[in-house]
Computed example of a mutant assay.
Amino acid sequence: MTSTASPAEAGTEEQQPGGTPAATMGGDRKGSVEQFALLAFIVVPFAALLAAVPLAWGWGLSWLDLGLMVFFYFLGCHGITIGFHRYFTHGSFKAKRWVRVTLAIAGSMAVEGPVVRWVADHRKHHKFSDAEGDPHSPWRYGETLPALMKGLWWAHLGWMFDEEQTPQHKYAPDLVKDPAIRRVSRQFALWTLVSLLTPPLVGGLVTWSWWGAFTAFFWGSLVRVALLHHVTWSINSICHAVGKRPFRSRDRSGNVWWLAVLSCGESWHNLHHADPTSARHGVERGQIDSSARIIRWMELAGWVHDVRWPSAERIRSRRRDKAAEPA
């Protein structure tokens, strides 16, 4: 179901040349303030993650903190995997309007950038996967070990500090034209604050103490965001450098089993690049894919429909010739 802006709303929208709506928050170029904010969101949570181990030994961690960290981790992770990725980027299913907006908000709470920019970058990645034009291929600098090490750094997080090259009106015109999704994208700073401040609010109210609020912020906000960031970035870097490749794809995407639970099924990356619109990435026996399971539950509840589940024939048609399987 598509929507159009009301005359009043349309009258207040900024316009691009040619009459198309203005870009959402997170335009086609990054300013110095945004670069600084990006650096802060990488360095500060990562520093918190490094401090997590000594803090966990003896003080500063409660079952409440752990529960908040796990809950908000998987809320944001599934917002990215189900919402930003499988739904908005690839159209793996259709959703009711309230589900569409909810997925956009949940993905925004992962603190990985505005939804429209995220989708535009990822669609460009698929168009040029592991070739010239890919925003974050680990093979960018070549195939020697030093080149790959440099490329892994680039694919993991270095690419985010480059000037933005993905035009949103070209790669995500459907989202730019959607007033509700454009609004959520512009409200990214708001949803970031909600994501970071809700855990300490809950921790403080439950324990009725500032210390409870502090530890909830440390574990439920900083450590959680850092861990989710690095797991997500590992799909760009590690899953395009190593892993098994049982399916035919035109890139080097691989399956990395030990990331499956933390990535909510995204690390079954080879099948995804062999069949990008599939709602399930873990299609073989024992491959955990919590995102696909939740999509199935939403389908049974009537919240989503026209889900692109891969049939056995569809999976078989994408298998790599066993004789050509790399050693």
Rank of each mutant, 00 (worst) to 15 (best):
E9M: 07
W211H: 13
W297S: 12
H169S: 11
T192G: 05
K170M: 09
G60S: 09
Q15H: 12
E132C: 04
E163W: 13
K127V: 10
A180F: 07
K124M: 15
N255H: 14
P7G: 10
H229Y: 14
L300T: 10
W297C: 11
D178V: 08
E132Y: 09
S291W: 01
I235L: 12
G243A: 03
T102W: 12
G18T: 07
F72A: 01
T277K: 15
A216L: 02
F93R: 01
H229E: 08
K124Q: 15
H90N: 06
A95I: 00
G204M: 01
A216E: 02
P138D: 12
P135N: 09
P17A: 14
T232Y: 04
C264D: 02
V202I: 15
L175Q: 02
P173K: 02
C239E: 07
K124W: 09
Y171A: 04
W257P: 12
V206C: 07
G60N: 09
S108M: 09
L38F: 11
K150T: 05
Q168N: 14
P199L: 03
F188C: 04
D134K: 11
G220Y: 01
I295A: 03
A147W: 07
T144R: 11
V33H: 08
F36A: 13
N236K: 04
S6A: 12
W257Q: 11
T166W: 09
C264Q: 04
F41L: 10
R319V: 10
F72Y: 11
A47L: 14
W159L: 07
H122T: 06
R182W: 11
W309A: 03
Y87N: 00
L66Q: 08
L49S: 09
Y141P: 08
P114W: 00
G58E: 12
K94T: 07
V176D: 01
R182L: 08
C77H: 07
